[in-house]
Amino acid sequence: MANHKSALKRNRQAAVRNARNSHIRSTMRTFVKQVRTAVATGDQAAANEALGRAVPYIDKAATKGIIHKATASRKISRLAKLVNGMA
C-alpha cells in the first residue's frame, strides 16, 4: 500500500476509474450479447432494436478510452453484418 499522500490519492482515483470502466465495459458486452441472442433466435425486429442500442454504447466506450476506436469499429461492423445477414 502507498504511504505518500499523493500516492494514496492516486490509488483512490484509480479505484474510481476502474469501477467506472468496468461498468461501461460490462454494459457494452451485455448489449453485444443481446444482439447475438436476437440473431440466434431469428428475430429480425429484436436484432435491429438491440443493434440500435448497442452501437451508441460501443461508440461511447471508444470515446471514453475503454476500448480502442478500431476495436469499436470492428465490433460494430461485425454486428451489423450479422444482423443484415438475417434478411
Rank of each mutant, 00 (worst) to 15 (best):
A14Q: 11
A15I: 01
R17M: 06
R17E: 02
R17S: 01
R17T: 04
R17V: 02
N18I: 02
N18P: 02
A19N: 09
A19R: 07
R20C: 03
N21G: 08
H23T: 14
H23Y: 11
R25L: 14
R25C: 03
S26T: 10
S26W: 00
R29A: 07
T30L: 06
T30K: 11
T30S: 07
F31K: 13
V32R: 01
K33I: 07
K33S: 13
V35I: 08
T37F: 06
T37K: 13
A38P: 12
A38G: 12
A38V: 03
A40K: 15
A40W: 04
A40I: 00
A40C: 03
T41L: 06
T41K: 13
G42F: 06
G42T: 08
D43A: 13
D43G: 10
A45S: 13
A45Q: 11
A45C: 05
A46T: 12
A46S: 12
A46V: 05
A46H: 05
A46W: 00
A46C: 04
A47R: 14
A47Y: 10
N48Y: 11
E49A: 13
E49F: 11
A50Q: 09
A50I: 07
L51C: 11
L51I: 03
R53P: 01
A54V: 07
A54F: 12
A54R: 14
V55L: 09
P56V: 08
P56G: 13
P56M: 09
Y57M: 04
Y57H: 07
I58V: 14
I58M: 07
D59F: 01
K60E: 11
K60H: 15
K60Y: 15
A61M: 00
A61F: 08
T63K: 15
G65S: 09
G65L: 09
G65K: 02
I66A: 02
I67F: 06
H68G: 10
H68D: 13
A70M: 15
A72T: 04
S73Y: 06
R74M: 01
R74C: 06
R74E: 03
R74P: 09
K75E: 11
K75C: 09
R78Q: 14
R78H: 14
L79A: 13
L79G: 07
L79K: 12
L79E: 04
A80E: 01
K81T: 06
L82Y: 01
